[in-house]
Design a protein around this nucleic acid. Structure first.
Length: 184
DNA sequence: GAGGCGATTGGCT
DNA sequence: GCCAATCGCCTCG
């Protein structure tokens, strides 16, 4: 399946299917092991209240990248899906450019390099300048998995609205998650 | 126009 | 476990 077609579905479908995908930015990155889905009718979503200058990329159509600043300090990256839904990339298992990521993060421990949405953006040098770019073109490189990894499912993290929706997905047993999943 | 808060992280208690 | 850092958007007046 082409990347464009893959992303032109609801975020709740795309988010678990993305597990095991390779994400590289300028050749640096790893395997996606944790994601979350956000919907326009979801009070926790940035697209819930319609377009603003900040969230415009979420309304630009499937295949775009939405990068926003979190708590005024960190950057977080989303893949835009159908109908202003989006998938937040929460954690990677580092595979490529590990020494560069170590230098950017000022940290040796591979396990913690990309174990959180703000961390992985720092490790991959993703900033607001990437907001609105197409995922299909450089500096991005995406390799979809042959088969999606087995997903653990749980409530999303760090939000106060609609916190009960089970739209967080992770690779079962991965040591690179931002937080463990509640035991099923 | 002012005040509050968030899809977070790292450091200190 | 708690708390500060720091910026854009929302809400209210």
């Amino acid at each position: 399946m082409s990347l464009a077609k893959f992303l032109d579905r609801d975020a709740a479908i795309v988010a678990p299917a993305l597990l095991g995908t390779t994400l590289l930015v300028d050749g640096v990155g790893g395997l996606i092991v944790e994601t979350e889905a956000y919907h326009p009718d979801d009070p926790a979503s940035h697209s819930f209240r319609g377009p603003t200058p900040r969230n415009g990329a979420m309304f630009a159509g499937p295949g775009h990248v939405y990068v926003y600043r979190s708590y005024g300090i960190h950057w977080c990256i989303n893949f835009v899906c159908r109908n202003a839904s989006a998938v937040l990339i929460r954690a990677l298992e580092p595979t490529d450019g590990i020494d560069l990521m170590r230098a950017r993060r000022g940290l040796d421990e591979v396990r913690a390099l990309c174990s959180g949405p703000g961390k992985l953006c720092a490790a991959l040098a993703v900033t607001g300048e990437f907001d609105g770019l197409m995922l299909e073109a450089p500096p991005f490189a995406i390799a979809l998995p042959r088969r999606s990894a087995i997903a653990a499912i749980g409530p999303r993290i760090g939000i106060t609205k609609a916190a009960d929706r089970p739209w967080r997905f992770g690779v079962k047993g991965s040591r690179y998650l931002s937080k463990p999943f509640p035991k099923a």
